[in-house]
């Protein structure tokens, strides 16, 4: 059973915002298909009315008092951006 084909890879690559070159699509599809066929065996397991467990701990929101605990580190944060201007991150035009 083929679950992942070239068409699927093209689609999920688009959703994940990565390009897979045409020449590599077949190879990616074959590998992902082999992997998913194997991992898909999980579907054969009877899980009854078991609840899905997203997290091992009972995860709750953690709140703290609304106090300023850090200082302005704008310049430090901008240091890692490769393109910036006048203290801002710079991106290509978004709205014409």
């Amino acid at each position: 059973m083929t679950v992942v084909d070239v068409k699927t890879v093209r689609k999920i690559a688009d959703m994940a915002a990565v390009f897979i070159e045409e020449k590599d699509l077949e190879a990616y599809a074959a590998q992902l298909n082999t992997i998913m066929e194997h991992m898909g065996k999980i579907m054969d397991l009877d899980t009854g009315d078991q609840e899905p467990m997203e997290h091992i701990l009972p995860v709750k929101n953690v709140f703290r008092d609304d106090e300023v605990t850090n200082k302005n580190i704008k310049d430090e944060l901008l240091k890692n951006a490769s393109v910036k201007e006048d203290g801002y991150f710079k991106v290509p035009t978004v709205v014409e």
Partner: peptide, 27 residues
């Protein structure tokens, strides 16, 4: 490859099947 696998598992067609099944197995 991992990003694609994860995107596949979480995509609308499969989320109920694969990801939730995996979480049940985790439980």
């Amino acid at each position: 490859r991992r990003i694609l696998l994860g995107t596949y598992a979480l995509s609308a067609e499969h989320q109920d099947e694969l990801y939730k099944k995996a979480l049940k197995v985790r439980n």
